[in-house]
């Protein structure tokens, strides 16, 4: 499909480009050569664009800040903080999207705390429970997280933020994602407002013309 239309592009070039050269200079040969150049050019343009677009699509990382491994761990932590029940939880409502996006914006100053904290968290789980957090059974995850929350995790592994500080950071950001406006990346489908029974948008008239 694209090929047909490349011809259209070349036609345009053939019709327009030689005009400034002047009548005498525009031999049949020149027009022919220009046509060939135009067709090759259009093909190169279309081809490289297509290749670039394909490259962009395949090279697309899912997150701006986190690695896949970090994101996987953090999603699991957030899901313990706001688990799915009959209404969506942190995973479904985009907690990771909120945190990932804001770490490139307003929450930029917490980047290092996340990078170091997640690594400390990972190593804590391996050392204390012998397996990654994601592989723990559900009650085990909650127990592990509680140990982090209360600062019972081995301090030696927490060289960046303390375990407590890291937990309260993730807790705050998960709450923000779930209860804040969807425009920031979380609270997908206004899930938390619906959970609270909070009308969104609020149904409110303007009381114009003196009608109460």
């Amino acid at each position: 499909m694209a090929g047909n239309h490349n011809g259209g592009g070349a036609d345009g070039v053939r019709g327009v480009a030689p005009a400034p050269v002047g009548r005498g200079a525009l031999s049949r040969r020149t027009v022919l050569k220009l046509g060939v150049v135009g067709i090759i050019g259009a093909a190169v343009g279309a081809g490289s664009t297509a290749a670039f677009a394909r490259l962009a699509r395949t090279a697309q990382p899912r997150y701006r800040f986190f690695s896949e491994a970090e994101a996987g761990l953090l999603v699991d932590i957030c899901e313990q903080i706001i688990p799915r029940d009959d209404v969506p939880g942190a995973t479904d409502t985009g907690a990771i999207q909120y945190i990932d996006r804001q770490l490139c914006g307003a929450l930029r100053r917490h980047r290092q705390a996340y990078r170091e904290g997640l690594e400390s968290f990972r190593r804590t789980c391996l050392q204390e429970y012998g397996k990654p957090f994601q592989d723990l059974p559900a009650p085990g995850k909650i127990e592990a997280l509680r140990a982090i929350e209360t600062g019972k995790a081995p301090g030696a592994l927490w060289g960046g933020p303390s375990a407590k500080a890291f937990f309260s950071l993730v807790l705050a950001h998960t709450m923000q994602s779930f209860y804040g406006s969807p425009r920031h990346g979380g609270n997908r489908g206004y899930a938390s407002y619906r959970m609270l029974g909070l009308d969104y948008p609020q149904v409110v008239g303007q009381n114009r013309y003196g009608k109460a």
Partner: peptide, 10 residues
């Protein structure tokens, strides 16, 4: 002509 054609093609 080549550059214009590239752009139009892309």
């Amino acid at each position: 002509a080549f550059l214009v054609a590239c752009a139009v093609g892309g």
